[in-house]
Amino acid sequence: MAEIEYVRPVNLKDALNFLWNHGEDTKIIAGGTDVMIDVRSGALDKKYLLDISRMDELKGIELNDQGLCVGAGVTLSEIYSSDLLESNALALKKTAYNFAGKQIRNMATIGGNVANSSPCGDTLPALSVHRAKALVADKKSTRLVPVEEMATHAYISSLSPKQIIIKFILTPYQDGFADFQKIGRRRELAVSRISMAVFAKKDKEGRIAFLKFALGACTPVPHNMELMEKFLTGKTPTRELIWEAGGLLAQKMIEITGRRSSTIYKEPAIQGLFMRMLYPVVK
């Protein structure tokens, strides 16, 4: 294998130009926390490593008329310390708090996490809850892709080799109940076995007026869990109702994946984690 060549364009335009010509032979590197593992193992069979970690065009978090924009090059640490995300996308901020270890949070980017298409990618549930769309560009065009469509299979991205994720545009939600929870084999530094994000609001009568929910790590690619929204909206959240909803969620997961050896655990644990996470909204 020929030695890989490192390329660091000065701006996005040059990067897109490069990919237009060499995309098939190129691996994009941002934070590097996933890519470097393949570099070490020799699994990366590309000619070029294109470093986009310093591009201003991919940085920044702002609320504008497009929505809540989070640059693809924003690190998990930056997400955690953003006041804007605290008030408009709390579940994402909580995700960042529980993401890997601090050294990795300092390097890993939200764009990289999505592009890597790991079923266990922790940013996916919160992005999904906020109905995030990725702004994806190549040299000639840009388009908006719902985050659920960013992966076609586990670890296979729907991005073409010529494309870069510029940013994510989220629907901001304020003043409701927002959370992200995960289960791993230890309390920190664990790959998610199950993760979940939610945003919910109740009306004056205590009924669920608005709910967005997403499940992570249980299905090969993210799935829209609108059934939870449909089932719970307009109802008064009781323990029994949340429990029932958690059961539905587990059945939905099994519908997607079929029964596997891990289902023995995941079926009840999904119901359990859903109950635990939504318990604060129970009247």
Partner: peptide, 19 residues
């Protein structure tokens, strides 16, 4: 006593419930 075994024990002992 991993996640699987503890949850199984919880289920078998009747603790796995919304109550």
């Amino acid at each position: 006593a991993n996640l699987e075994r503890v949850l199984k024990a919880s289920i078998e002992s009747g603790h796995f419930s919304p109550k």
